[in-house]
Amino acid sequence: MSPGDEQGYTETGHTRTRLPDPDPYGGAPRRPHRSSSRSLVTVVGVVVLLIAAIAFANRGGEGGGDGAPAKDNEPKSAPTAATGTRPVTTKTGTIPTGYPHTEQGAQSAAANYAVALGSAEMFNRAGRDSILRTIITPSRVASSEAAFDKAYTPAFSKSLGLNDDGTAPQGYTFVSRTSPIGTKVTESTDDSATVEVWCSGLLGLAGDKSTNPVTNSWFTITMKLEWAAGDWKISTHSQKDGPAPVPGDDRASSADEMSKAVDEYGGFTYAR
């Protein structure tokens, strides 16, 4: 994915501070207080670790918060409808790459990079390093890898109910997905762009005895992109909570339903 650059910053987009009321696996109207408290403690631990990691990775970087456009003091407006232009025709691994050297290309890149940063692969070192080398500007890859290695420790994995290497225990499915809702450019030049990506995310461990059930959150990732190595790459990014809608009255799915959904429903290539 969530996440200025040194405050509340997370390169994974995994800040999860809004917990739904319904019991994710029991179908009851509200989750028991003890379960909610346990999930909240886990969320706070995730946030603290990732803030430290991203602050390290961004040390010495420029601010990545809202910026003023070059010609006026207000963010550029953008229609909610897609442009209809295909964003890319190539990919690196599973990540779409090769974006146009345009403002629209920067928005498409930011949306797809938010998905990569919020994926379950970020919790495994090999998968994480591959993602960072694909989407981070070359000059910052090494510092980003070092920062995340310090954050994604065996203790951190255990706090989420995962194995030491970030994989799910047998019989469980680890869910970590980020879905972009929209993008907005707040500043741009020929070779740089600051893009906000409004997202919804899922994080948790699906299983009958999971103490960290899958929860939903809403957040906005601000990415400062630069044109490097023939593509848009992230130089810095930050994350903040919301905007979040009022929770609906949907019945929470069972652990089995959630596991099947993750296995059966694929992702998308996002375009602006």
Rank of each mutant, 00 (worst) to 15 (best):
E226K: 12
G64E: 00
D72W: 02
S179L: 15
L40T: 11
A70R: 11
S108A: 15
V115N: 03
N216S: 12
G61E: 12
D66C: 02
A228C: 01
T236N: 12
S144P: 00
F268S: 13
V262M: 01
K91L: 06
S188Q: 07
G93S: 09
G64H: 03
P87H: 01
Q104S: 09
P29A: 10
I136V: 15
S200Q: 14
A151Q: 02
A252E: 03
D165F: 09
S210T: 07
S159V: 03
S176Q: 12
T183K: 01
A55P: 00
P32T: 10
A109E: 02
Y152W: 08
S108K: 01
R128Y: 05
N58E: 13
A126K: 14
N212S: 13
E196Y: 10
P3S: 13
E226S: 12
F174K: 01
A271N: 05
T102H: 05
I95M: 08
T211D: 15
E62D: 15
H101N: 10
A82V: 12
K184D: 08
V175D: 02
R30L: 04
L40I: 06
R34M: 09
A57P: 03
N112V: 06
P180Q: 11
T236L: 06
K91W: 02
F123Y: 13
S192W: 04
C199Y: 02
P245R: 03
V46G: 02
P24F: 02
G118R: 03
E74G: 04
D250Y: 08
